[in-house]
Amino acid sequence: MDLRQLEYFVAVAETGSFTRAAQRVHITQSGVSAQIKALEHELGAELFLRSGRTARLTEAGSAALRHARAALDSTLGLRDAIDDVKGLIRGRLTIGMVTGCEIAPLFDALAAFHHEHPGIELELAEANSDQLVAGVRAGAFDIVLAGLAGGPPEHLASQVIVGERLVALTAPGGRLAERDGVTVTELMSYPLICLPRGTGIRDVLDQAFTAGAGLRPEVALVATAPDTVAGLARRGLGVAVLSESMAAAHSDLVCVPIEGVEILALLALVWQERTSPALAAFLRHCRTAFEPMG
């Protein structure tokens, strides 16, 4: 076997598709398939269950994936060590961010990093926060900017950018608009508009209902973008639940504090504790870009 086969194997495992893997590694799908078949022949076991356009790991494939990633990481480590000696940084960074959120400091960090290191290939992807953190653990992302409920994830490096409380947003003239605050229990009497499960803000809301009243929030509408959540509330379709900074962008709506919720919605950078030179350089730009928010 060779490193190219391992790279293709990991690409298929992470994308769940020979087509998407081929796009990632920039060769034809038939080339990826041929190399995977050669690897399976050498190992004496099928690595994937092929069904239509999807590819799922077999038990043998799952066992092999960790070792394949470790071999590729060792190769990258060797390259990074040589690059450090030469004073070079090259390679690729895969960065994740929360779906539907326009996070200007992250874009500023990306721009500054690209200007300083134009040889680094950057890949940016959006997902819900739970998917982002899982992606860091699996090695699919080098670093993510994710929303978290209450605290940073275990066994990963992280930097909390900001911690905020939840607020309710309602259209002027609504029955909540004249209130100075609302409790979690009182929110049960309103149709709620929220971000989906797996986002930090929704996780905080769900935990607050469970801890405070042993209830589940009655969510009328779900949208992936904070602006959409606010837009639905603006049209009188319910009460939006967002963070303080998200609410500040919608001054035409009435912002009502949610009382008794001690859990903070965190925005944090999350990455594996071991960093490549490229990731270390990107982190420096992130810290500069996000410093005003800290």
Rank of each mutant, 00 (worst) to 15 (best):
G96V: 03
Q159N: 04
A109M: 02
V270K: 07
C286A: 11
V162P: 02
R90E: 15
E7H: 13
G198K: 04
V239S: 07
M1H: 10
S74A: 12
L176I: 14
S17Q: 11
L266T: 04
G238V: 12
I263V: 15
E40V: 09
Q5V: 03
A112H: 14
D83T: 04
S17W: 05
L267A: 04
G150W: 13
G238I: 10
F18P: 02
T99R: 12
A247E: 06
E46T: 14
G260W: 04
D84E: 14
R235K: 11
L132P: 00
E218A: 13
T183A: 05
C194T: 15
G214S: 13
R179I: 00
A149G: 09
A208Q: 08
C101W: 12
R53Y: 14
V133M: 01
F48K: 08
L266H: 00
P217R: 06
A230S: 14
A138I: 06
A134V: 00
F107R: 09
G87Y: 10
L253E: 14
G139Q: 07
E154G: 09
L148C: 03
T183I: 06
I82T: 03
G236R: 05
M293D: 07
I120Y: 09
A125T: 05
A281I: 02
G150A: 11
R50S: 13
E126Y: 10
G87F: 12
L253Q: 13
E218K: 12
E102G: 00
E46V: 08
Q159M: 06
T170I: 01
F48G: 12
T210E: 10
G135H: 02
A13R: 07
V10W: 03
G214Y: 13
A55M: 08
T99E: 07
